[in-house]
């Protein structure tokens, strides 16, 4: 069972959260005219074995978006921050 340490609510069960998206993906600049950056942004993802950053939503809690480090191999949970406070 995954337990996530929400910066607002504290340590909570995974069932209170929903997975959002890959948090390592950055949107290309709006004036980007090449197709490949947009193709990668929309469709292509790495499939890392180990630590990965993900967006999770604390939907049954404070309703904040979080950036969470999760080990895809062990489900170990690392740092968890409010997405609004994460700088690129």
């Amino acid at each position: 069972m995954i337990r996530i340490n929400c910066p607002v609510c504290g340590l909570r069960n995974e069932t209170e959260f929903t997975y959002g998206a890959d948090a390592t993906v950055s949107r290309p600049a709006m004036d980007e005219n090449e197709m490949k950056p947009w193709l990668d942004y929309v469709f292509n993802r790495t499939n890392p074995r180990g630590w990965h950053k993900e967006y999770w939503h604390h939907v049954q809690g404070c309703r904040q978006w979080l950036v969470l480090e999760r080990n895809t191999l062990t489900h170990e949970i690392g740092a968890c921050e409010l997405a609004r406070e994460v700088t690129e």
Partner: peptide, 10 residues
């Protein structure tokens, strides 16, 4: 107080 889910309801 705390916010959580009961029966999948916040």
């Amino acid at each position: 107080f705390f916010q959580t889910g009961i029966h999948h309801v916040g």
